[in-house]
Amino acid sequence: MTRPEPAFEALWHAQVFALTVHLNEIGQFTWGDWAARFGATLRRHGLARELNGGEDYFAAWLETLEGVLAETGLADSGDVTALRDAWEAAYLRTPHGAPVRLDDAAG
């Protein structure tokens, strides 16, 4: 047997994949609707350049998920951006090796 390839190239690929599957399983959207939205994003991105199916594939996946969640009001894009910046600040102020935590005030 050859050594199995890792399922995901990067941790965030696995995280955005699993988050989407979970949201589907708890009934936030059907998989058919998700596939249609995601396919449309891939088509739009693929017009500008040929997608390699790696990082660009999951970038399209994340963009689709952000769009769906913003539209349905589950995750307002302003709130997401604020939390993203709060996480960045948390990483920048946390010494290497220590657990990274958000300020309670953030977001």
Partner: peptide
């Protein structure tokens, strides 16, 4: 500590995924 002044900063999409997960968790949705 001059070698690694802070934790390795995740990429922008990785931070955005963390933000989504944090927000949806705080709302009790996931």
């Amino acid at each position: 500590d001059h070698d690694e002044p802070h934790s390795l900063l995740p990429s922008d999409p990785a931070l955005r995924v963390k933000a989504l997960e944090t927000l949806l968790t705080r709302k009790g949705l996931i």
